[in-house]
């Protein structure tokens, strides 16, 4: 187990002990929620892991790095940011995917742009956002999120 994994598990254990001391009934309820979300996310996790295996075995690093690597330039960055904005995949599984892309030649900026737009912008949830908060706010938030995602990505590409 990596250090990170140990820290995360200790954190969960700490929260659990604290919660148990506070309220036994609600902790039980929380465990129910945890099991349910675990069962729900599990297929997506397995799917992405299998896809990563295939990706790493088949996609040559030269291709990945040409598409979304350092050579891809600003156009490649915008393309992958746009892809992240339209795609609707669970964020939790986007991180292993991002890690595999990085490992096989993608640029830091591209990966950061992809994750940021993927989480921050929801093309699928946009109608609901408009309904609840109005057109102006929804469009402003999603539009500006795209711009700041690109800025964040460029900054990360520069500093890492």
């Amino acid at each position: 187990m990596s250090t990170t994994a140990i820290i995360i598990n200790l954190l969960a254990l700490g929260c659990l002990v604290f919660a148990l001391a506070r309220d036994r009934g609600r902790t039980k309820q929380a465990m129910g929620v945890a099991v349910k979300s675990f069962v729900r996310i599990l297929p997506a996790v397995f799917i992405i892991i299998v896809i990563i295996g295939l990706l790493m075995a088949f996609a040559p690093p030269e291709v990945i790095s040409r598409l979304i690597g350092e050579q891809a330039g600003f156009g490649g960055l915008l393309a992958i940011a746009a892809l992240g904005a339209v795609l609707h995949i669970p964020t939790l599984i986007s991180f292993p995917l991002a890690a595999s892309l990085l490992q096989s030649g993608a640029g830091v900026a591209s990966v950061a742009a992809f994750i940021t737009t993927l989480t921050m912008i929801g093309a699928v949830t946009l109608p609901l956002e408009i309904k609840e908060l109005g057109r102006k706010m929804a469009f402003l938030r999603n539009g500006l999120s795209f711009i700041i995602a690109v800025i964040i990505a460029l900054t990360m590409g520069a500093i890492l």
């Binding site: 994994a5 609600r26 902790t27 929380a30 465990m31 929620v33 945890a34 675990f38 996310i41």
Partner: peptide
């Protein structure tokens, strides 16, 4: 392996916060 060592812990944290 990387996923399986953290996913249950992450789910527990999520469950606790969503209830509390």
């Amino acid at each position: 392996l990387e996923m399986v060592t953290i996913l249950p812990a992450v789910m527990i944290i999520m469950g606790l916060f969503s209830v509390f």
